[in-house]
Design a protein around this nucleic acid. Structure first.
Length: 341
DNA sequence: GGGTATCTGAGTTACCCCTC
DNA sequence: GAGGGGTAACTCAGATACCC
């Protein structure tokens, strides 16, 4: 059985009665082929459903024009914004993208990285999970152009486009204080993830803003919830069962905030009166809920556009990428945090 | 069994040739 | 000599053949 699945440049050349060179050049505008010959070859190529083999092209020119994008968890909602923006931006530069996820695991991260390298990506966009040292060492040792997005772990010293995590906590804290909240809790990720630098910085920012109002947050106010709606609901439920009450809560993402709001409603608490809730990510659905969720908006479109264009410019120029860009968050105030008392 | 040479895939490109 | 076309070398890495 033959491995051949589609027409090749040879088939087109044979049928057109020209060389493979002439066929190849016919696909390049402004090349030396006459208009008449070009039109005839393109018509035959179309008739034979000929599509140039990008693997062979890459082999010859030594380039794949492909970027790899490794995310932490493909199911997280803001990655859909990032992946679409990355794909569109790369396409505008004539590049394509392939995706993988690290599942928040350094082991899986190294596997995903090796898989990307095996496919000869020319550059990598990385969402780094904490302790992902090995994959970064591999990428740096091979001098693969790369850029980190979203958040940057403390150990990472390379280029990035990230959010100002500290400002996220600070913005939320200042708003909660402004609403009259005096008993403020931070719904963090699960215990094993809560030490990640992004969450730590958010908590630090929150503490700073709350502290400025003369209120100090204790370690008990850092609640290990998780990252899902169910996690938020369960964590809130556990607090109520222990008779622990907060009047202001910052959640590490909108989904946890939804969980808190759902559980609060189930317990007869009115969000926006008894309790102010703020999420992070500003998902599209945040403004649609019965009680619209106040959330921290982070410009993932801008972040991704900057990262992809910076990476491609670095690849094309051959210069080392050194950009370290920090994007400022924006507080989108809705009814979940506007206390009417 | 290990090492080396050759082949394979499909397309690109440097260099050469032919014609008008 | 310009325009238009062809030949052959070349790309990489895995598979296969061959030799010692």
């Amino acid at each position: 059985m033959t491995k051949k699945h589609s027409s090749t440049i040879r088939d087109v050349a044979l049928k057109a009665g020209v060389s493979e060179t002439t066929v190849s050049l016919s696909f390049k505008p402004l090349s030396r082929v006459s208009d008449e010959t070009r039109a005839r070859i393109l018509a035959i190529a179309n008739e034979l459903n000929y599509v140039p083999n990008s693997v062979a092209q890459s082999l010859r020119v030594g380039r794949t024009k492909t970027l790899g994008f490794i995310v932490n968890d493909i199911t997280e909602s803001f990655y859909s914004v990032m992946s679409r923006t990355a794909t569109d931006t790369a396409y505008n530069y004539g590049y394509q993208l392939i995706y993988a996820e690290n599942g928040w695991s350094p082991t899986k991260a190294i596997e995903s990285t090796k898989s990307m390298l095996a496919q000869r990506v020319e550059g990598l966009i990385l969402c780094l999970c904490e302790k992902e040292v090995t994959s970064i060492q591999l990428i740096e040792s091979l001098r693969i152009p790369h850029i980190v997005v979203d958040t940057s772990p403390d150990f990472y010293k390379g280029p990035y486009v990230i959010n100002n995590e500290f400002a996220i906590g600070e913005l939320a804290g200042a708003h909660l204080i402004e609403q009259g909240c005096r008993n403020i809790g931070f719904f963090n990720a699960s215990k094993d993830m809560a030490s990640f630098s992004s969450f730590s910085q958010q908590l630090a920012g929150l503490k700073r803003a709350v502290g400025a109002a003369g209120i100090s947050m204790q370690s008990k106010d850092n609640i290990f919830a998780g990252i899902s709606i169910e996690d938020g609901a369960q964590a809130f439920k556990r607090l109520l069962e222990r008779d622990i009450h907060y009047d202001g809560i910052l959640c590490i993402n909108d989904e946890v905030a939804y969980g808190v709001m759902q559980e609060a409603e189930r317990r007869g608490l009115k969000v926006g009166r008894d309790l102010a809730v703020i999420g992070i990510d500003n998902l599209k659905t945040s403004s649609l809920d019965r009680v619209a969720l106040t959330s921290i908006h982070m410009n993932y479109e801008l972040m991704t556009t900057l990262a992809v264009s910076t990476l491609i410019n670095g690849i094309e120029s051959g210069h080392e990428i050194t950009s370290r860009i920090v994007l400022e968050p924006e507080l989108i105030i809705r009814s979940s945090s506007q206390l009417s008392r």
